[in-house]
Simulated scan of single mutants.
Amino acid sequence: MPPVPHTAVADLLGALAYAELTAFDRLAEDARMAPTLTGRASLARMAAAEIAHHVQLSARLTELGVDPAAAMAPFVSALDTFHESTRPSTWLEGLVKAYVGDGLATDFYREIAGFLPEPDRSLVLDVLADTGHADFAVREVRAAIAADRKVAGRLALWGRRLVGEAMTRSQAVIAEHDRLADLIVSGTGDLSGIGRLIERITDAHTERMKALGLNP
């Protein structure tokens, strides 16, 4: 694989930095919908972890001589559009969005991290580490389904909508940012490599839906 251009690294870190910033905003907002203080505190702690990740990424961009705000700016519209079109209306929808929607994005970034040189590869993998949301979301959603089976159908539809929107937005971002597209193409090797990457991400999504007790 050829050396990764400095500008491509900055693009990826900028996209991820804004994703972490929006994750903080959303988790803090969703925490207020929690039916219990325990749930509210859990999401608040996760929000704190996300803003800490944002700070790490911003610091690295500064080290690279890149203004973090400038690096994030090109990705604001796409990510904001996704989140506005998939705003949860209930506590459970918020949990599914964070687990399924953010999980899909995490898998995507983790795949691309493998194409980066150190120390940026380790940094990206570090900020993508689970903040505890996965197990918490699975417990809450499964408990809700056990209490009311009708919940499963509604949440399954919601999960499928999230994935459709996420894939559409991801494709648009890649199409609009040549350096990211080049990084993915050079990292995977060819179209068949890209196909295998998409297959791995899709398989992981299916497993997440099953973990929640939902039909993929």
Score class of each variant (00 low, 15 high):
D67L: 05
M33G: 02
E63A: 13
T86D: 03
V4R: 00
A98Y: 01
E29I: 01
V76N: 01
Y18S: 00
E63V: 08
D67W: 03
P5H: 12
V76R: 15
A47H: 05
A47E: 02
E63C: 09
L79T: 11
M33Y: 09
V9R: 00
V55W: 04
A52G: 12
Y18E: 07
G103C: 09
T86S: 11
S77T: 13
I51S: 08
S85I: 01
T81L: 04
V96M: 01
A44K: 00
E63G: 04
L16N: 03
F82C: 02
D25E: 13
S58K: 04
L12I: 08
L37W: 11
T38K: 13
M46K: 01
V100K: 02
P74V: 04
L37Y: 07
L92V: 07
R60Y: 05
A73G: 08
I51V: 15
A52M: 06
R26H: 14
T7E: 12
A98E: 10
A15M: 15
E63Q: 13
E93M: 03
A78Y: 13
M33I: 04
H6S: 12
A69E: 14
E50T: 01
D67S: 11
E84W: 15
Q56T: 09
M46T: 08
Y18G: 00
S85G: 00
L57G: 01
S89T: 07
A17N: 12
T81Q: 13
T36I: 05
S89V: 00
L13I: 05
E63F: 06
T62K: 13
A48L: 14
T7R: 13
H53D: 14
W91Q: 02
L13A: 02
P88M: 04
G39M: 05
A48H: 12
D30E: 14
Y99H: 15
V76L: 12
D30R: 10
E20S: 13
T81F: 00
T86M: 07
Y99N: 06
G94A: 08
R32D: 09
G94F: 02
S85K: 12
T106Q: 12
A98Q: 11
T62M: 11
V55N: 06
W91I: 04
A48T: 11
P68A: 03
V100C: 05
A34Y: 03
A47R: 09
A17Y: 09
R60E: 14
V66R: 14
H83N: 13
G39W: 10
A10D: 01
A98H: 08
E29P: 00
A8K: 07
A34M: 08
E20Q: 15
E84I: 09
A17M: 09
T7V: 13
R40C: 08
L16K: 08
T90F: 02
P2S: 12
L21A: 15
F82K: 05
P35T: 10
V76M: 07
P74I: 04
P5V: 11
L43P: 06
T38D: 07
T86C: 10
A105L: 15
A59R: 15
